[in-house]
Design a protein around this nucleic acid. Structure first.
Length: 936
RNA sequence: GGGCGGUUAGCUCAGUUGGUUAGAGCGCCUGCCUUACAAGCAGGAGGUCGCAGGUUCGAGUCCUGCACUGCCCACCA
């Protein structure tokens, strides 16, 4: 029988089977909704993993959260589109293939561009799907039919379109500026790809002799004002100095204005200029100016028309301009230069100095600020809108503080260098006329046939675009832009973006800038003044951004290959199952803190899955045995519109109680998911399923299910039906977090013939307030107290586990007494507390040995064994102390007028009630302590 | 140089707009293979919530300062 589950829970087998099933059955394919669509729409774009990537814990966290949100929306009746794809990852992929070539003894230079690119495509065909295959194993409910790759034809066309439009709007320009140059990658990189690292270094003070122009007299050279001292951390760049700057307000140097210095080693005369660049407080107040190798100096150079002398080449070696140092690596040159300066008496001092060293994020190579002709995006106009939409709340961040971080960054943004000296990527759609003296640049969607000068030889720019340029367009290009598609109309803006902080600026910020620019209809070149708020609101790429935490190892260390502490999600899954791993990530995803991923935690959630598994086995066992194969009628009407528990018979207290608890759980879980509190949602389900359903409800219905004991078939069948219906609803509640085990058991409930193809298509439970039963919860709490009290007594009295004890119960409040009388049947307490007979008595049992008391009842176990009086007295004393302390505090507050007038009523009332109960209890404890004293 | 976060049980972390007795998992101790589950059941120990002030009838929660710690941003030599 299909519903007969194997005895042991083995996630591996179940999970791969359903993962395949979901893909094969195309369960998550989303048709473009028709014009008359009334269903709400939910759109989510998968942050495309690098095509070279392997799944890591960060991906898994990210995807787990996305899958939870998407499954939840789908079950709530949304048209839920989750769009998957991969990123061509320019540098990463190119390097990967180059390494492969190197092993074959080839290199791309010899191969040529065309062949190399063909080779990259081959690589991609062969290995590029790996990470998405891994995703399938995670159960990601994406629409695979819509899978994209950033180099697809349609996306590439859109990239060109964007480039051309931005160029036509004057927002893309080409020019020779200082860029971050990575000599290892052989390309310019953007500011974001540079990471600064504080390292100990040296600050060199160098004496530049002053000469008074060409007509300097030798006499003056002997004065002590004959030199000016500059400080630098990079002495090798001095070879390219074209000025020394002093601050115009710095009186120490006013007599030198307009004079020149003789550049040591190079013997080149360079002017002393006055510029804000030099800050009087720093060092000597004089700074060397190297326009070709420093961004600040570059600007100063423009202000003063200084020549730009490059001395370091693209391989970070000194070039011909470096005279005797030509050919040396920049650091070798530094050493030699310092040596030579010292030898010639120019080196005044060397100080220890902490340097914020700029390194290439990818290769770790020290980045060289280098003069280079590149393409840039003029970012200010785009940033303006991107700031506006966040300030106005058209895009909301969770956690909120990321909105501020985003704004700070966006307000200080610099132009974006978008050209890369690579082969793999979107080639820049610009052509240069090769005719002599024609410097025409043509930016066009297609290769132009001829230049306006008449020349027909046009060469396309050799560079490609920054990968983030194309991924920044994905929220609309994946939906068919620049065509005005129905998809675009329905699915844009995306509802949500879930991603990590690490790509907030790289990607999220760029998507917002580009989305708000291109999706602001109608597109008016050059006009971006205040316009229709609705249009602006509708232009955002997504309405909300959820930033998730970083997954660290159990010791809070960042996972990194070099540290060797990287956890492979596939291995973790292999060991504990995808469901348990997903649950761990969800349960630990409290906002604001990183996740210290602990396997012991995962093992705990594997145990939770096992608990569910066994509870299901218990259910099926009873369905077959007791109820003769009873199954819930698979009425589809009960499933999709049905939000809660279908046809539940509230015959007993525990029935009413569990139904109430289920509704509370459903309410809480929905609320938590609304605010992306995955941790709360997961923990809430855990507590309900294990702590209430399994620990209490299952135990309490066992007597009814046990035919041999009572043979009430009708009651047994009702109990069984309740269990099945409750379980079914609980599975739906859990499904977004643990999709596999819930799918497996759900199908089993329907004997393999479910009314829908998947639990993922069933309705998500919502709370029905009418089923929340406060009275049942209160009564049940008393009953639970009583059972726990009996268990405590058994432990105290050291009753052998197998021995059943008779108990006596006293309750002074008639209502509670009658409630207990109604619900406390021996059979009910048999299993939970091993009780064999219950007698209600008329007098308090509080002072009896072998009794326990709460403010509502006393319970006494009839058992011969002597108790450990000393231990009992200690326990009672401790408890009494605690209660007395509370009582004193509470009474003090209740007699304080200030408290009584200022505190809200419910707090005062609550406290009064507490005092009442504590008083009763403390008297009972006292009575018992007296009794104990007399007995010893 | 700016900005942000963290500090609660042995470990990893929750703790809503301040409100009655600060929770969980793992670990630990005791007893149980009770016919769903030893990946389990029952019971138990363990916290002056980083420190010092302040606001308040009331502070783990709000404010100020300090200490320790982590992260991000930054073209200053």
């Amino acid at each position: 029988m299909p519903h007969e589950l194997p005895k042991t829970y083995e996630p591996g087998a179940i999970e791969s089977r359903w993962a395949e099933y979901w893909v094969r059955e195309k369960l998550f394919h989303v048709e473009t909704p028709p014009a008359e669509n009334k269903r709400p729409v939910f759109t989510l774009l998968l942050p495309p993993p690098n095509v070279t990537g392997r799944l890591h814990m960060g991906h898994m966290l990210n995807q787990t959260q996305m899958d939870i949100v998407v499954r939840w929306h789908r079950m709530r009746g949304y048209v839920a589109l989750w769009l998957p794809g991969t990123d061509h990852a320019g540098i990463a992929t190119q390097m990967m293939v180059e390494r492969q070539l190197a092993k074959e003894g080839k290199n791309r230079g010899a191969m040529g561009r065309e062949k190399f690119i063909e080779r990259v495509w081959e690589w991609r065909r062969e290995y590029g799907g790996a990470i998405l295959d891994q995703m399938k194993r995670l159960g990601a409910s994406v629409d695979w039919r819509r899978e994209y790759f950033t180099m697809d034809d349609n996306l590439s066309r859109a990239v060109k379109e964007v480039f051309v439009r931005l160029y036509e709007d004057g927002l893309i320009y080409r020019g020779k500026y200082i860029v971050n140059w990575c000599s290892d990658c052989g390309t310019a990189i953007s500011d974001l790809e540079v990471k600064h690292e504080d390292v100990p270094g040296k600050l060199y003070e160098i004496r530049y002799p002053v000469v008074d122009g060409k007509a300097s007299s030798r006499d003056e050279d002997k004065n002590k004002d004959d030199f000016i001292i500059v400080a630098t951390t990079r002495p090798e760049t001095m070879l390219g100095d074209t000025a020394v700057a002093v601050n115009p307000t710095d009186e120490r140097y006013s007599h030198l204005h307009g004079k020149h210095v003789l550049l040591p080693l190079m013997n080149r005369e360079i002017p002393i200029i006055t510029d804000e660049l030099a800050q009087p407080e720093f060092g000597t107040g004089a700074v060397k100016v190297t326009p070709a190798h420093d961004p600040n100096d570059f600007e100063a150079g423009l202000r003063h028309n200084l020549p730009q002398i490059e001395v370091i080449d693209e391989h970070s070696k000194m070039n011909a301009n470096a005279g005797p140092y030509a050919g040396l690596d920049r650091f070798a040159a530094r050493a030699r230069i310092v040596e030579d300066l010292a030898a010639q008496g120019f080196l005044v001092g060397t100080k220890d100095y902490t340097i914020a060293l700029a390194k290439c994020d990818r290769s770790g190579t020290i980045v060289e600020p280098r003069l280079s002709t590149q393409w840039f995006v003029k970012i200010a106009p785009l940033a303006r809108r991107a700031i506006e939409v966040v300030e106005k709340g058209y895009i909301r961040f969770t956690p909120e503080n990321y909105g501020q971080i985003y704004l700070n960054w966006m307000r200080n943004i610099h132009d974006w260098c978008i050209s890369r000296q690579l082969w793999w990527g979107h080639r820049i759609p610009a052509w240069y006329c090769t005719e002599k003296d024609c410097n025409e640049v043509v930016v066009a969607r297609e290769a132009p046939a001829a230049c306006k000068c008449g020349g027909t030889h046009l060469e396309q720019d050799r560079d490609v675009l920054d990968t983030w340029f194309s991924s920044g367009l994905l929220p609309f290009t994946t939906l068919g832009w620049p065509e005005a598609t129905r998809d675009l109309e329905v699915f844009y803006p995306n509802s949500l973006m879930i991603t990590g902080f690490d790509i907030l600026f790289f990607w999220v910020a760029r998507m917002i800038m580009l989305g708000c620019w291109f999706m602001m209809p109608p597109h008016k070149p050059g006009k971006h003044g205040p316009s229709d708020e609705e249009a602006l609101r509708a232009s955002v790429p997504f309405r909300e951004v959820y930033i998730h935490a970083l997954v660290r190892d159990a010791d809070r260390q960042k996972m990194s290959k070099t540290k060797g502490n990287v956890l492979d999600p596939i291995e973790v899954i292999g060991q504990y199952g995808t469901d348990a791993t997903r649950f761990t990530l969800a349960a630990m995803a409290a906002p604001g803190t990183d996740i210290a991923f602990s396997e012991s935690r995962t093992a705990g959630y594997r145990n939770f899955a096992n608990k569910i598994w066994n509870a299901a086995r218990f259910m099926f066992m009873n369905v077959d045995r007791v109820a003769g194969g009873l199954r819930p009628a698979p009425d589809p009407a009960d499933l999709h519109p049905q939000k809660g528990v279908a046809r539940f018979h509230t015959q007993t207290l525990e029935d009413r109680w569990i139904l109430s608890r289920f509704n509370r759980a459903a309410r809480d879980v929905n609320e938590s998911l609304h605010t992306y509190r995955f941790d709360e949602a997961a923990n809430r389900i855990y507590d309900f399923f294990w702590g209430e359903l399994c620990d209490w409800y299952l135990e309490l219905i066992k007597p009814r299910l046990n035919l041999e004991a009572g043979a009430d078939t009708a009651a047994a069948q009702a109990a069984c039906a309740n269990l099945v219906n409750l379980f079914e609803a609980a599975l739906r509640l859990l499904h977004p977090v643990m999709p596999f085990i819930t799918e497996e058991i759900w199908h089993a409930i329907y004997d393999g013939k479910p009314p829908l193809k998947s639990i993922a298509l069933a309705a998500y439970p919502t709370a029905d307030d009418r089923q929340i039963d406060l009275a049942a919860e209160t009564d049940m709490a008393i009953l639970q107290d009583l059972i726990v009290s009996v268990r405590n007594l058994r432990a105290e009295l050291k009753v052998e586990p197998k021995v059943k004890v008779p108990i006596e119960v006293f309750a002074h409040e008639p209502a509670i007494r009658s409630m207990l009388e109604q619900n406390l049947r021996t059979i009910l307490l048999d299993r939970p507390a091993n009780v064999e007979k219950i007698t209600f008595v008329e007098n308090s049992l509080a002072n009896r040995t072998g009794a326990r008391s709460t403010s509502r009842f006393d319970v006494h176990a009839n058992y011969e064994k002597k108790i450990d009086v000393a231990a009992e007295r200690e326990r009672l004393t401790k408890e009494l102390e605690k209660i007395e302390k509370q009582l004193t505090g509470a009474q003090a507050r209740l007699s304080d007028d200030n408290f009584l007038t200022k505190a809200p009523t419910h707090v005062v009332e609550g406290l009064r009630k507490q005092v009442e109960e504590s008083s009763v209890l403390s008297e009972k404890l006292l009575a018992k302590l007296r009794e104990l004293g007399e007995n010893t």
